[in-house]
Design a protein around this nucleic acid. Structure first.
Lengths: 204, 204
DNA sequence: CACTCCTGAATGAATAGCCATTCAGCAGCG
DNA sequence: CGCTGCTGAATGGCTATTCATTCAGGAGTG
């Protein structure tokens, strides 16, 4: 009750503030208990708001999960697009994609758990997610590979779609293993090992 | 009611019969609705038994899911071990592993959904699964890679653990994409494309 | 063979508890 | 006052699991 100073900065973004808090709390709660075992009441209390408040910002529990995905994927894809714009070498581009991918997940274990574990938790989810963000992410990888094929740095006989799935799958597995591992290690550096083998495998 | 001949062979396995029926029904139900959205009553009716009967064979809904995993992984690993025994070339061994992996999942879409989607649905599950079957499966791949390194067919500078994760991740992604895809295609042949790139990447 | 008694597998209605969502009202502010 | 934003207790629906009961068929008996 009684917040230090309330006026100045606390006026405008109570909205965005609380929404953010709920999203962050939900990420933590989902990561620790799994989506289906998480109670909305847990999320509310972790966010420091009342149960009902959650429904002022989200239509349902499910929408919370969606929002976490959407926000993260949108951010990740647009950030990647931006950084890739200034690059030429397709090999370097793939390295950058891998790095950004693992760096982002490696920086927030809870977020990583939600992505690697909870996202997989229902075909419905995967299909929805698949349609939107995932497709554009895979597309980013594929476009880079096709670019490399045109330039002659990657073998042109390969099916770019399959090749992009291989890279994605390998990175995804690194992330999944990382969250399951008891031993703490840096995730991002794994990307280099993956890329070494991958590039060696696809280079012309 | 009225079973043809009851004595001879019908005496022993009414038990295994029903257990099997429940397991098969559960695989279908879980695959279609997701584990958490599946009602035990749905499984029972799909299996053609009463709700209560399920509890004569399984302690809980969760144990049903476990049993599906355990049975499949055990079968897969021992089958793979057996086939690999008679082979020498590590490259061929990896091809065989990939083939068996995708062949098995490709032959039963429901089972594939349970494995690719439901298995990922909770950290708890993954940890338990991880401990048992998954580790031994990854270990099989790793052992083959190390064997290849000793024989000089694979680059010895590579970390075999990471390399095995890459291969597994790539195969896993093929399977996941396959179940999500609307278009029907054969899963197993994807293994060859994966192996072409993979072997090219790791060969000495 | 005919009959009775048992056994335990199978049943499915009832229970018990859980939890997402709602909403009547409260507090602070201008 | 009149809003706006928030609260949290109450509601309603749902479903895993239990358990009293049924019943088919095997065993024992005369």
């Amino acid at each position: 009750m009684m917040r230090s100073v309330r006026s100045l900065s606390n006026n405008r973004p109570p909205v965005a503030d609380k929404r953010e808090a709920i999203l962050r709390a939900a990420t933590r709660v989902f990561a620790r208990n799994g989506y289906f075992n998480s109670k909305v009441a847990d999320i509310a209390s972790a966010a420091g708001v009342a149960d009902g408040t959650v429904y002022l910002y989200f239509k349902s529990k499910e929408e919370i999960l969606h929002s976490i995905f959407d926000r993260t994927v949108d951010e990740a894809v647009s950030e990647a697009r931006k950084q890739l714009e200034e690059m030429r070498d397709p090999r370097e581009k793939l390295r950058r994609i891998a790095h950004l991918h693992l760096e982002r997940l490696g920086a927030d274990r809870d977020l990583a758990v939600v992505f690697q574990v909870e996202l997989r938790g229902s075909t419905k989810f995967m299909e929805e997610f698949s349609a939107a963000g995932f497709a554009s992410y895979l597309g980013l990888i594929r476009a880079t590979i096709e670019e490399g094929q045109r330039e002659g740095v990657f073998r042109s006989g390969l099916n770019a779609k399959v090749v992009s799935k291989i890279l994605f799958g390998a990175l995804d597995e690194m992330a999944t293993n990382w969250i399951l591992s008891k031993r703490r290690y840096k995730l991002a550096p794994m990307g280099d090992q993956v890329l070494d083998i991958f590039l060696n495998g696809v280079s012309a």
